[in-house]
């Protein structure tokens, strides 16, 4: 059977819930299990582009105004390969390429000033407790509409934000107090590097190559990966806590998140295969009461 041959029968009305589940799993497995080399290339290619901006700007080969948007795109692109690694999609524990999975996560997440393990633990907690007002680490992103969401995302990065407390609580629940120390070390190092550059006369380079792209990138990431796919974020339950949705900036512009429901149901499917998996399993998802908007 090739990757595109359909599994779903034309009439699902006679199938039991168990049979639907079995079909859904069969499709999910069809799209999983292969190393998503595109994510690996994306991770290191993106990091290489961002790192190359620094010498290019310092040597005045590239003007800062031109490097700034590139740096912003790079920051927005950091998260998703680490996300594949968080879910062990690149390589599962105990497999030959496990080191690569961990390398992708650890080697790139520092750009957005988060230790990889913090991203992994808090994100897996989000999957376990999606839309739970007490336990979902991303619950604070819930907002009335897109502009409110952007404001909320900025607000939740302030020092006294509830999101900080929620992340801390997730690490405490996981008994990983060591990661709290590491998170502080990342933040102190970030400020240290920015400060060293700034007090040596390169404040604007630090501002436009890292600090501002970082904040714009994080806002974009949280908007499209967290707010939009879960909006309005009031329902819990496997088939209701997220959705498929039509993005005004398309699937690429929203970093593949139109098919987020496939990711929550089957988080072992690589990002680039979720659209195909979605279209194949959408009749089943519909039959199971999922929130479908495509």
């Amino acid at each position: 059977m090739n990757a595109h041959s359909p599994i779903v029968p034309s009439d699902l009305s006679q199938l039991s819930d168990g049979e639907l589940k079995k079909l859904e799993l069969k499709i999910a497995r069809k799209y999983s299990g292969k190393v998503p080399w595109i994510a690996v290339l994306w991770a290191f290619g993106n990091m290489a582009v961002w790192l190359s901006l620094w010498p290019l700007v310092f040597m005045e080969i590239l003007p800062l105004w031109a490097a700034f948007p590139i740096a912003t795109v790079c920051m927005a692109l950091v998260y998703l390969p680490t996300h594949e690694a968080q879910h062990d999609i690149i390589a599962r524990p105990g497999t030959n390429l496990r080191w690569l999975n961990e390398l992708v996560g650890h080697a790139t997440s520092w750009m957005i000033v988060y230790p990889f393990e913090v991203l992994r633990i808090t994100h897996l907690d989000h999957h376990r407790h999606t839309n739970d007002p007490e336990l979902d680490v991303d619950i604070t992103v819930n907002s009335k509409g897109p502009w409110h969401a952007i404001w909320n995302i900025v607000r939740q990065r302030q020092p006294n934000a509830k999101r900080n407390t929620d992340y801390l609580a997730a690490l405490v629940r996981a008994n990983r107090l060591d990661l709290i120390v590491l998170s502080i070390a990342y933040k102190v190092t970030f400020i240290g590097v920015l400060g060293a550059l700034a007090w040596n006369g390169d404040a604007l380079e630090a501002l436009f190559l890292w600090w501002l792209p970082y904040h714009l990138g994080i806002t974009y990431i949280v908007f499209f990966l967290s707010w939009a796919p879960h909006h309005p974020g009031g329902e819990q339950g496997r088939y209701r806590n997220t959705r498929s949705w039509k993005s005004k900036v398309g699937n690429l512009g929203s970093m593949g998140m139109q098919f987020h429901i496939v990711h929550h149901l089957h988080p072992y499917i690589p990002l680039h295969l979720t659209p195909a998996a979605y279209w194949e399993m959408s009749p089943i998802l519909e039959a199971r009461g999922a929130r479908l908007g495509l």
Binding site: V188, I191, L194, A198, W199, A203
Partner: peptide, 17 residues
């Protein structure tokens, strides 16, 4: 961290900006 950030980064950014 806020006050450290202000003197480490914000001040030179405003000055050089």
């Amino acid at each position: 961290l806020p006050i450290i950030f202000a003197f480490a980064f914000l001040v030179p950014v405003i000055d050089q900006g």
